[in-house]
Design a protein around this nucleic acid. Structure first.
Lengths: 127, 127
DNA sequence: CGCTATATATCGGAAGCCGAGATATCATGG
DNA sequence: CCATGATATCTCGGCTTCCGATATATAGCG
């Protein structure tokens, strides 16, 4: 079952493959680039994720190429993978929105952060 | 070190605590509610996350109450926790956006999904 | 009295992450 | 000619994290 939420690593692999088929090493670079360096997918993580996504039917081996003597194994999204990515993107966007709203609300009416509970005066705290 | 990206579970716990202090069981219900049932934080996961977040200084024990004979242990965000949540929310929003853009781009110009590569006829295969 | 809801917490197996290393080609630099 | 680094694959083992199951306890419903 792929209805359960996926891991962060799986999400970014699917995102990297969403526009075009890519090979392992290319996915690594693409994830780093599309997240502006914020997300660093590790080599040791990649192949496990690739195997799991394949087993779940979200990606498939597209083709194998030899580029300058080096083997490249390209993967691509399946329709299920595309749909799963959409669902997860929706879920993440909603989560991010909820968090941002609450942070903004907390700035307007402090109390969630700052001192233990009741305590007049001094509204500082978050820089 | 809390500079590394946090787990999904940790993110939703922080989000649940962003507007007001809550106790464990309340966090469980709040996460389910704010995600519209899409995210189900498990009891077995919760206390480990709470311990880790406390150790990382992102949350602290706010107070303990006894409500109808039952103990309630309330946690609240620290300024660091609030900031970490903001950073992670930003990262998630960016990731979700990137995924959505690629999905939309793929719909305009198919090829990422569908058949292996060049190859007319027969588009079946994956159900 | 059993069931459900509320509320805490622990344990252990399973799943996932990731540093490190193995293997191989090609280009660059010394 | 060899070292180094980038490209490219993959495996292994330890650590972290997840989560189902279990334990304990109170209150309310049927």
């Amino acid at each position: 079952m792929a209805s359960r939420s996926m891991t962060q690593a799986a999400f970014f692999v699917l995102t990297a493959l969403a526009d075009q088929p890519r090979h392992g090493y290319g996915i690594l670079r693409e994830v780093e680039e599309l997240s502006d360096g914020a997300v660093q997918l590790r080599v040791g993580t990649l192949y496990g994720v690739l195997d799991r996504l394949t087993a779940d039917g979200l990606i498939v081996l597209d083709r194998e190429e030899v580029h300058e003597g080096r083997l490249r194994r390209y993967y691509r999204l399946t329709p299920e993978g595309m749909q799963a990515l959409g669902t997860e993107a929706e879920r993440m966007a909603a989560g991010a929105s909820a968090a941002k709203e609450r942070i903004a609300a907390g700035r307007r009416a402090p109390g969630a952060v700052a001192k233990p509970s009741a305590g007049p005066g001094f509204a500082g705290g978050v820089a």
